[in-house]
């Protein structure tokens, strides 16, 4: 299958290794990756911060860039949530009929990365090898908006050598919240501190998630506290095999 990759603006800029990992996994499964260079951002930051009109041109851009794609893979639950929960509303508010129908036609072909593997491609074992103790953080968007359920867990359970350690209070928000982490940084920090107690209690080597936004926040604090744990996006773990060394956050 020809899979179009929407890497998302922050992964493109800050975490290119996630895109590289997604490409590795999908190519290993025999698919071809299409990366339209005209893509930029889904508009989530503008929309969620209250600048809804500023998000409209970004919605148009996304639709124009991906309208002919067979499927679109997005390694970020929050960006997919933005599309699924708000694109139709934005298109409706714009009064642009053709945008409305294009959004409606495109959305069913947009998948979060792990969701695409399990639900669209029917794969739970991607042939990964990752001999580490790992705990999984369910981001709020993957849990409550995309209802991914145990999809990421099923993928992780099939990784050779990986020991999956369950986390208490798994549905507790880590406190990132986009611009919330800046506008309410003290509260965000307090929420993170509570979450970190549960994360550290697992004594895992790696905390993983489907969203690098949470992981940037969690990993930033783990690094600040010189904790003996690092964060890795789930794509990095699924891309690891016995032949390849995938660059990790900690190695940089």
């Amino acid at each position: 299958m020809r899979i179009s990759l929407f890497i998302t603006c922050y992964n493109d800029t800050l975490f290119p290794e996630i895109g590289i990992a997604v490409v590795r996994v999908l190519e290993r499964l025999g698919h071809t990756i299409d990366f339209p260079y005209a893509q930029t951002c889904c508009g989530q930051m503008h929309y969620n911060t209250g600048y809804q009109p500023e998000a409209l041109p970004l919605v148009r851009r996304f639709v124009e860039v991906f309208r002919d794609s067979e499927v679109v893979c997005v390694p970020s639950s929050s960006c997919v949530t933005m599309m699924r929960e708000h694109y139709e509303k934005i298109a409706l508010a714009s009064g642009d009929r053709s945008l409305q129908s294009e959004v409606a036609a495109l959305l069913p072909r947009v998948y979060e990365f792990t969701e695409m593997l399990v639900h669209r491609l029917g794969v739970e074992d991607v042939g990964a090898v990752y001999p580490h103790r790992v705990t999984y953080h369910s981001s709020c968007h993957s849990l409550r908006n995309l209802h991914l359920g145990d999809v990421p867990i099923r993928l992780l359970r099939n990784v050779r050598g990986l020991e999956l350690i369950p986390m208490e209070a798994g549905d507790l928000c880590c406190g990132f919240g986009g611009t919330f982490s800046i506008k309410n940084s003290a509260v965000s920090g307090a929420m993170l501190e509570e979450k970190l107690q549960y994360i550290k209690k697992t004594q895992a080597e790696v905390c993983t998630a489907c969203d690098n936004s949470c992981l940037m926040h969690i990993g930033g604090a783990l690094h600040r506290q010189r904790a003996n744990m690092r964060t890795e996006h789930i794509a990095t773990i699924l891309a690891s095999d016995s032949d390849s060394r995938v660059p990790s956050n900690g190695a940089r």
Partner: peptide
């Protein structure tokens, strides 16, 4: 406000 509690890669 970010770097008060978190490092940034």
């Amino acid at each position: 406000r970010w770097t008060r509690t978190r490092d940034l890669r």
